[in-house]
Design a protein around this nucleic acid. Structure first.
Lengths: 183, 183, 183, 183
DNA sequence: CATGAATGAGCGTTCATTCAT
DNA sequence: AATGAATGAACGCTCATTCAT
């Protein structure tokens, strides 16, 4: 109950998160995280009973930022620019945090807070996308989920190449989404 | 070394390949392949010292088909249609054969034949792409490698969703590649 | 060392004992006891350095009751009834308190008080048994320790079946002990 | 398929069984067995996928012998001697093989063969016991299962003391089972 | 060549015990 | 004296790889 006792715990937690964020999120091995963090295995389990809990914690902050972005985009009167801003930021954040893709894609799993955040992000973006589609600046034959998958695809493409490809590949995606499909 | 022994070896090889192609290429367990093939583990290792070798062998046929496609596309006088055909086919083949992405992306590894085929495919497509870019039907600021990565990205996106998304997501990519970048 | 601190310590001790007596004595997990007692693990270790110490403390009360029984049996002029009463009570108490068997059997270990109580119990019962054997109501070829082991055996048998078996199995044992061995 | 290949496997199997029978059957740890047997963990798992499989295998031979005993007892025209022989042998075998108690008691689990053997043993003994009870040489108020539990209890008692106690404690049990209960 | 038994590194997980606060 | 976070040994189990037959 003393804040002093917590100091150590907080430090452990942060070392673990730091170590974990250095690993490939898709193959987190809790023993390895413990080793890297210079911490006992048990400590990792105390803080994060499952891999999902750890991945979730790793993504919490990023999810908050993405929600922020999604909400600000919702307030942008220019629908095209709103879409551009959001997708650009989403891509950047996903590249920064390799676990975000999983967390967003499997949005029904994970802890309460992550699910809530994911839901808010999707909801906000759904609104923006619908608006853009009504205004004809985004092709009307695509769903929110498909756009999300596309962003994940571009993330994948950037990872196959170099970070420097990001702007170009994003631009291709945006151009492909713009306007109506050619018949 | 008798002909009989050889026949046996060939038969083993084929059983292994048949068994492996039934598995998800991205999580090949050699023991399981052996069991499915009705063959000892050692036999699998004799034929394919590494997982990559097996994946490579599994992709040989697909690579040949892709080369065929690339060459035919090279002969299509309509550059736009050539690009469209090739990328569509490449995507379809990659979705069909989950190992193809790796084989093409890590084209400098693998066995002689795979490397040669990959090189031919890339060379043929490079020609077609350059022509399309000269004619202004594909944006000029993108490289062969980046397009390859994009295809892999779309493959990834389709896998996240459903096979039914393929046509749409491909179309987005093609639309995004078309013409010149907006200023 | 203030009286207040002492009061707290006593309270902790009692909460721990209460929690532990609710668990199966043969699979005590100190962490769990601590949790159930609403007390830190460290506190449990302070009061009871080893599991044995805790089991011993848990048995103290039962041991006192068993000593009482042994002494009263010693005063029963009817040797057969004395034996019957004592063994019946001993069995009942052992079934009630799963740790008692260990405490009695390993009577040379444990804390001062437990050892003293065990010694008194064995001494009192030894007197009663000798008397019964002199009077010919209990076979003369069996020792106190063997009888103790038999009681533990019957306890084991009852645990394998149901509590309802207790009377019958006790009766078998008593009948088996009665009189002289058949030649 | 070659007998040669099996030679090693048989040797491993036997080393494992030997090592395991040296351990306390009620706390078999497969890693430890492997260590003791001088064999890789995987080898233990190949031969015995579960602890139960190992315990079962350990008891197979003993079970067969016990069935033999039960059947021969069934053919003994003297019911009292039949009971005496069977229980004496059962006790001896259970002392020899610490896992037998578990295997017999949890007779519905385990592999096919063990269950079949246990069933045969219980069936044969049930016949003998009923006969003895009809003839009035064994008290009529006890069931096969209760007798089995008693044998386990005596096994427990002997283990608490020394092997030398076996004959005496068995005799107490037999005397206790004899005739009719005193009213 | 083929076989599949053997190996052992290594992951996930638990839990008794210690020790900084 | 109390706390509970931290520790790490050890177990269950899997699987890629080797090697005796």
């Amino acid at each position: 109950m003393t804040p002093a006792a917590r100091a150590d715990a907080v430090r452990s937690r942060e070392r673990i998160l730091a170590a974990a964020s250095g690993c490939d999120v898709r193959s987190l091995r809790l023993n390895e995280v413990a080793r890297e963090a210079g911490v006992g295995v048990g400590t990792v389990y105390r803080h994060f009973p499952t891999v999902e809990a750890l991945v979730g914690a790793l993504s919490l902050d990023t999810l908050r930022r993405l929600r922020e972005v999604a909400e600000r985009a919702g307030e942008d009167p220019d629908a095209a620019s709103a879409i551009r801003t959001f997708l650009s930021e989403a891509l950047a954040l996903q590249l920064e945090n390799g676990g975000l893709q999983t967390v967003l894609t499997a949005a029904t799993q994970g802890n309460e807070e992550n699910r809530a955040l994911s839901a808010e992000i999707f909801a906000a973006f759904a609104g923006t996308l619908a608006r853009a589609q009504r205004e004809g600046v985004i092709r009307s034959d695509i769903t929110v989920l498909q756009v999300h998958h596309l962003v994940c695809g571009v993330e994948h493409a950037v990872r196959l190449g170099s970070p420097a490809d990001r702007a170009l590949l994003l631009d291709v995606m945006l151009a492909g989404l713009a306007g109506e499909p050619r018949r």
